[in-house]
Amino acid sequence: GLIKAIDRFDPAQGVEFTTFAIPTIAGEIKRFFRDTGWMVHVPRRLQELRITLAKATDELQQLHDRAPTTAELAEHLSMDEAEIREGIVAGRAQTAGSLDIGSGSDSDDGPTLGDRIAFEERDYELVLSREALKPVIAALSERDREVLSLRFGSELTQAEIGQLLGYSQMHISRVLKRVLGELREALLTGE
Rank of each mutant, 00 (worst) to 15 (best):
D144T: 03
E48S: 08
Q62C: 03
L53D: 11
L53K: 11
P68G: 10
A186W: 05
R116A: 12
E142N: 06
P135N: 04
R31F: 12
R174T: 05
L164Y: 04
R85V: 06
R184Y: 08
T69M: 10
R34T: 12
Q62F: 05
T52S: 14
E131W: 03
L187C: 06
D109I: 01
A93C: 13
G162S: 03
V175N: 01
L126M: 02
L176Q: 00
A5N: 04
T18A: 15
F32D: 04
I101W: 02
I117D: 04
I172V: 15
F32M: 06
G102Y: 00
A82F: 12
G91S: 13
S149C: 05
A71Y: 10
M39D: 04
D106T: 01
A159R: 06
E125P: 00
R178Q: 12
E160K: 02
R122Q: 01
E48W: 05
I51D: 15
A96G: 14
P68F: 08
E121S: 08
F32S: 08
L77Q: 10
F17T: 09
L133A: 07
I3W: 07
I22P: 02
I84T: 04
L113G: 11
L150K: 15
E185V: 03
L150P: 01
L2P: 00
D144Q: 15
A186R: 05
L165M: 14
Y167L: 13
Q61H: 11
L126Q: 02
A67H: 09
T19V: 11
G181S: 14
I137M: 13
R151A: 06
A56K: 15
I29V: 15
A138T: 07
E81I: 07
G91H: 08
I161Y: 01
E72P: 07
S149E: 14
Y124E: 11
S98I: 08
R31T: 14
